[in-house]
Write a protein that binds this DNA or RNA. Structure first.
Lengths: 155, 155
DNA sequence: ATAGTTTCCGAGACGGAGTATCATTATGGT
DNA sequence: ACCATAATGATACTCCGTCTCGGAAACTAT
C-alpha cells in the first residue's frame, strides 16, 4: 500500500511517490558513506508510509520482519541526518515524522494526532531577546504547540 | 498543629529557610486533603535544598531513608499541585525544580545546569496567532530555552 | 567474478526510569 | 483511644531504548 497522504497545506511541490522518497533518502545516506541495505530501505519505506507522527514501537510492529534494534538504529540515523524529526507530545511521548529538513516547529492535534509544520513564526528572535535581557545566550530551544486542528475544531 | 522542627542541626542555605518552605507547602497540601507525613516532609525538604534542577533519581539518592516509590509519588504530587515544575533538557532528560506557581518557561544553561525563569516573553500570543493562521486552535505548548548563563558566558 | 574489508543485521541481554502491587504503618477525625 | 483510610516501602514489573556479538551482507580492489 503506497499511500501518500498529503498534509494540510496549500502550496506543495509534488511529493515524490514513496519509492522515490526511499531512493532519494538512500542516495543521501550513501553520499554520507552509509550503505544501501534492504532493512534500511524497509524502514524508510515504512516511515514514508505513515500519515501521522508515529512511535518507534509502532514502526517495529509495522516491520515484523526487521529487527527491533535495526528499526531503532535506522530511525536514529534518519533523525541525525535530518530526514526525520522528533516530536514530543504533551505526555512526553516521543514520536517521529518524515520532515522537510530545516528548523521548524509542530502544531499537534490532541484529538486526531495530526501534525502541521509551523515555520518562521518569529518566536525565535523574541526568545533570544528575552534571554539576552537575562544575560543568557540562547543557543537552542524546544518548542511544540498543542491544540486542535481545523477538522477537529469543526466537529 | 504540631510544627516539627526538621532536620538535625547544621548548615543552612542562603535561601528562605528550608523549614518555612516545607511548612508552607505542607500546609497547602493539607488544605487539599493530603496528610502531613514525615516522608513527605523529607521529600519537600530535599527538593527545597536543591540549587539546580534535579532528577528524580538524584532525589532518591539524597533520601536513602525514603522509599523510591514514595519519592516519585511525592514529586508527582508536587508537580500536580504546581509547587514543582518539570524541566526538559535538550537530551530529553527530565528534571525538576521548586517553582513559583504560574505559567513560565526556563532558560537552561548547558554548562553549569542552572536555570532561570522566563516570564511574559510574549511568545504565547505570537504562537497562538501563527497557529490560528493554520486553522489551528492552540491550547498549550512546551517551550524550553537552551544556552549559557551569564557566568558561563563570561568564562 | 572473487576475495577481503567493513558495515550492518538480528536476537536477545541489559539498563534506566517510572509505575503497580500489596501488606503494613501512620495519620487525623471522632 | 478508636478506626477508617491515606500513605509508605519493598519489590516486581513495564516500557523504551541501547549494547553485545556472532554471522551476513555490501562495497572495494584485484
Amino acid at each position: 500500500m503506497v499511500v501518500t497522504t498529503p498534509k494540510h497545506s496549500g502550496h506543495e511541490h509534488p511529493r515524490p511517490r514513496s519509492a522515490a522518497v526511499v531512493d532519494d533518502i538512500i542516495a543521501q545516506l550513501c553520499d554520507l558513506g552509509y550503505r544501501d541495505t534492504e532493512p534500511r530501505r524497509l524502514v524508510i519505506s515504512a516511515v514514508a508510509a505513515q500519515s501521522r507522527p508515529f512511535t518507534a514501537e509502532e514502526l517495529c510492529s509495522a516491520l515484523p520482519c526487521v529487527g527491533r534494534a535495526t528499526v531503532y538504529r535506522g530511525l536514529r540515523l534518519l533523525v541525525e541526518t535530518d530526514q526525520v524529526c522528533r516530536i514530543l507530545l504533551e505526555d512526553h511521548e516521543l514520536r517521529y515524522q518524515l520532515s522537510q529538513p530545516g528548523h521548524h516547529h509542530h502544531l499537534l492535534c490532541g484529538v486526531c494526532g495530526a501534525s502541521a509544520d509551523l515555520e518562521g513564526c518569529g518566536a525565535e528572535d523574541l526568545l533570544r531577546e528575552a534571554a539576552a535581557a537575562a544575560g543568557f545566550r540562547m543557543k537552542g530551544h524546544l518548542l511544540e504547540v498543542y491544540g486542535e486542528c481545523v477538522e477537529c475544531v469543526e466537529d
